[in-house]
Amino acid sequence: METTVASTTPEGDVWGGGNQPLRASYGKMMMWFFIVSDALTFSGFLAAYGFSRFKFVNAWPIADEVFTHFPFLHGVPAPMFYVAFMTFVLIFSSVTMVLAVDAGHKMQQSKVAMYMFLTIIGGAIFVGSQAWEWATFIKGDYGAVETRGGKILQFLDTEGSRVAIGSFAESMQSTATEHAESNGVWFMGGNQQTSYNLEEVTAGFLANDNLLIRTQYLDENGHPTVLSRAASIEKIQNDGKLVVEGANLKRNEYGHPLFADFFFFITGFHGFHVFSGVLINIIIFFNVVIGTYERRKSYEMVEKVGLYWHFVDLVWVFVFTFFYLV
């Protein structure tokens, strides 16, 4: 490829695209430029996460306590195992991608197609896993009470293990009313209904002497502060405002709402990259199968999408560390 323009004039050679600065083709170099700028976008997200975490460093949720679920293992706490699985899936799909690039260098069409196919499967498994992770996070597990200051109160028994609000709240004649049209215009919906309201949770809390409240503030050992029974009763009666179940962009039963915001933005932006990577890989896969690159006598296109795919893996390595480990 590089030597085909040797007969052109010096101007055409240098300025007409015949020259390859840094011995990289135009497309590959542009892919590297894109990767650098996209890396800066992701580091902007992660640095903003670090900023918010440093700002509320004594009240930040512990990721180990948030992501404890594994599909089909109901009630078995398995912190980190599922993200570790997702990490392996993505690294492995990177391996099949680089094998496809290598087979492309050797002009082995069927091998490229097979490895591209495996890469697409890996990417699909990853995106599916992330959807499951989101669904679990949004649904929540124990439920919590939000205070008037926007802080989260969680419930523990005297042994220190978490208690779900559904297991102690007393069902009462509901005082909550549906949003009535006489109270406002249709688009100003009422508060989201939780399965128990604050009065029911408070009544259940007062009736069970073995329950304690845990605040989101961390003590000097990095564990959330657990209040005494008297302080717990005082806290829920004076400060409790509403029940929170699961997480969304405004409220988050696991702790600070910013934690959920960054979770949705960072893993969502990364998941979107994986999703578009899968789409691009599918296009390239069909091009390989119909022999486009065989006719072009170069599989450089596979190399270029390969760069993008590895970059997505590279970003996940950092997201994994800074969101789940540190």
Partner: peptide, 21 residues
């Protein structure tokens, strides 16, 4: 390029975050 810019961004944001804390 990437390492320089990322280190700079992380440094100023983390110092600022700690200050607000």
């Amino acid at each position: 390029t990437a390492i320089f810019l990322i280190c700079y961004l992380v440094l100023i944001l983390l110092i600022e975050g700690d200050y607000i804390f």
